[in-house]
Design a protein around this nucleic acid. Structure first.
Length: 661
RNA sequence: GGGCCCAUAGCUCAAUUGGUUAGAGCCCCCGGCUCAUAACCGGGUUGUUCCUGGUUCGAGUCCAGGUGGGCCUACCA
């Protein structure tokens, strides 16, 4: 009897808009739940939103809305994004729901009843501007708030505390007894070493804002946002709130085979230390696994608003379709590792794997050979009378099915797809070696039928194995095979294991290709639509290549040199760029009407005050570029060797703006 | 400062946990085929497995040290 399976994403902070980072987590959880469902397990897939906290309270105010209205408005894009991506969650929890709030309070009471909550003074640095406490290490030099750049105050506040320290040893024991509790292993090591240092009691209430869950019996206090947020995994199922029944909670939490939280590596500590400790205290079962995946960069750069490469999933879905994006997410990066989202690789994988590999396999048999020679119907064959080549492919399919299942159980999505594509490739080889087009010409109907059937059945298997990742496309594929859509059913294992499921006589439908290839022009226009710099055409590439080749062994012309506008500039201001190791922001007089701002990576070698009043040499006509959000209008020349770096200067005080040549 | 992880072909990654000749995909070149979406198939090129030393009959794999990169954590100013 297949036991229930529970998988969750983090609840996303509703202050943000959905981006591909959110999408990546959510797709992964969707793939897990779809796979488990296919195996006949009752599966529950939860995602949702974290809607409390000071930041939301403040944002709402700025927008002139009540917090409630604000979060309602911000929630919509998330729901839409998951729908567009084909993420079929069973639950969508919002921490502002009454069900959730009641359960947070219930959790609090359970922890209090255990004697794990006490009231005490909390003392730390406080920023009036932020209305919140700052830890020492957040502060800038001179005890300044990193946001307001104003001095913080030492303030005491009454706060409830959770006896986290008490759980140091129980947690370590639990880790010891459950070696797969945190994945990947390297992250588990981090967690263990953090706990081994010893845990301090945790402040779990705030009085500085109102937008949260009131502490039971002390409404002056609001429950700490993480205690509030983490409880979503339980409250979404009905949870242990005193009265009322919670059948979902009983099924998917209490008696579940597996409870898997998929999280980003940034929120690992909350899920692997605080959350289990809260649950131990409350006497609630712990999750079975916390899976920390890595971060996606975008075209090699960290995604951030200031770099202007904040990437929402919507336009991508519009451009390539949900399933293709899902495929790319799961295929491109090892789950648990950091990876890169690149438009170029997306298109390469699309053309190389989906279009040429799977799509073409489908097309060459169903839309062509079968249609032309066998009336487009699944032929009748004697499965006992097959050729060794056929058996080989069948064995490959069986191996692939078993191996892909193993990988999917372990959330090794990229491995699973790798395995499945070996089968796709084997099937294409099989078609080549059996040469069905020749069989057709020779009118060898028996053999032709065998070959076609073997490929068609392989395609049927693929339509199941790929279903968790590409549900829509797999059903399209099945429609072309004349098969009904896949309907996962509890207690029925649909994962392919028996050969011969396709019924002879079934009419196939050769519709449009599953994955039509993008030609170069289409790629360009798509990338333009997405706002990505279009890749160079082959000719341009060749031209660029020869040009750089030339540069290698040829002198430049004097005119080429004169293109570089070198000038002497006087440094008027200099300051270190906050949060940066290497950058100094300079304001220089280059003899122009307006002073220029230049950001230079010299902080490790010069201190700002030494620079003011100096004359330096700058490249004045360099294309401006943003560094750490600051525009740099030029570049300071410096020479470096292994002993360090020194700036170029002039040995007389020439007028700022003088040209160097 | 303490700790964890990583380093393999131009790129992305494998290598049955110490086993013989280190493999795939992408890219590039050549050839074949022609059913198919300029698709498919075959062949070819590319390695100081980061470095130095050690253990062993045998090391990509284990140990020590080093270099480089990523991360967790403590602290200084």
């Amino acid at each position: 009897m297949a036991r229930p399976f529970y998988v969750t994403t983090p609840i996303y902070y509703v202050n943000d808009r959905p981006h591909i980072g959110h999408a990546y987590s959510t797709v992964a959880a969707d793939v897990v739940s779809r796979y488990q469902r296919l195996r006949g397990k009752p599966a529950y897939f939860l995602t949702g939103l974290d809607e409390h906290g000071l930041k939301i309270e403040r944002r709402a105010k700025e927008e002139g809305l009540a917090p409630r209205e604000f979060v309602d408005r911000m929630a919509a894009p998330f729901r839409l994004a998951w729908e567009e991506l084909g993420c079929a969650h069973d639950g969508f929890i919002r921490t502002t729901s009454s069900q959730h709030r009641e359960n947070v309070q219930a959790l609090w009471k359970l922890m209090a009843a255990r004697g794990d909550i006490y009231l005490d003074d909390y003392e730390d640095w406080y920023c009036v501007g932020c209305e919140s406490f700052k830890t020492e290490k957040e502060l800038l030099d001179g005890n300044l708030c990193p946001i307001h750049q104003k001095p913080v105050e030492r303030i005491k506040e009454r706060s409830y505390f959770f006896r986290l320290s008490k759980y140091t040893q129980p947690l370590l024991d639990y880790y010891e007894a459950h070696p797969g509790f945190v994945r990947p292993d390297a992250r588990f090591n981090e967690v263990k070493s953090f706990v081994k240092e010893g845990l301090r009691d945790l402040s779990i209430s705030r009085t500085s804002f109102r937008w949260g869950v009131p502490v039971p019996d002390d409404p002056e206090h609001v429950v700490y946002v993480w205690l509030d947020a983490l409880m979503n995994y339980v409250s979404a199922l009905g949870g242990p709130a005193e009265d009322g029944e919670a059948p979902l909670y009983d099924e998917f939490w209490k008696s579940s085979e597996a409870i898997i939280h998929i999280v980003g590596k940034d929120i690992l500590r909350f899920h692997t230390i605080y959350w289990p400790a809260f649950l131990m205290s409350a006497g609630i079962r712990l999750p079975t696994q916390i899976w920390a995946h890595g971060w996606l960069t975008v075209n090699g750069e960290k995604m951030s608003k200031s770099l202007g490469n904040f990437l929402p999933p919507g336009p991508l879905v519009e451009a390539v379709g949900a399933d293709v994006l899902r495929y790319y997410f799961m295929r491109e990066v090892g789950f648990g590792q950091d990876g890169d989202f690149s438009h170029r690789n997306l298109l390469n994988r699309y053309n190389g794997e989906l279009a040429n590999g799977l799509g073409n396999l489908m097309n060459r048999i169903v839309a062509s050979i079968l249609k032309k020679n066998l009336d487009g119907r699944v032929p009748k064959v004697d499965l006992e009378q097959l050729d060794p080549t056929d058996r080989q492919l069948i064995d490959r399919a069986k191996d692939a099915s078993a191996e892909a299942a193993r990988h999917l159980e372990a959330l090794a999505f990229h491995r699973a797809l790798d395995t499945i594509w070996e089968l796709v490739s084997a099937a294409n080889k099989y078609v080549d070696s059996t040469e069905p087009w020749r069989l057709a010409k020779q009118d060898d109907k028996t053999r032709l039928a065998q070959v076609c059937y073997t490929v068609l059945e392989t395609l049927r298997w693929l339509s199941i194995m790929l279903f968790p990742v590409m549900p829509e496309k797999c059903n399209e594929l099945r429609a072309q095979l004349g098969m009904p859509p896949l309907l996962p059913t509890e207690q029925v294992d649909l994962w392919p294991s028996a050969w011969g499921g396709l019924r002879p006589g079934t009419q196939t439908q050769s519709a449009t290709p599953l994955f039509p290839r993008f030609d170069e022009a289409q790629e360009r226009s798509m990338l333009e639509r997405l706002g990505v710099e279009a890749p160079k055409s082959e000719q341009e590439k060749a031209a660029a290549m020869t040009e750089t080749e030339k540069l290698k062994d040829e002198f430049i012309e004097f005119d080429d040199f004169m293109k570089v506008d070198l000038r002497v500039a006087l440094v008027k201001e200099a300051e270190k760029v906050q949060k940066s190791k290497k950058l100094i922001r300079l304001v220089v007089d280059a003899g122009e009407a307006e002073p220029r701002q230049i950001v230079a990576g010299i902080a490790e070698h010069y201190s700002p005050q030494d620079l003011i009043g100096r004359r330096v040499v700058i490249v004045a006509n360099l294309k401006p570029r943003k560094l750490m959000g600051l525009e740099s209008q030029g570049m300071v020349l410096a020479a470096s060797d292994e002993s360090g770096l020194c700036m170029l200067g002039v040995d007389k005080d020439v007028e700022p703006g003088s040209r160097a040549k």
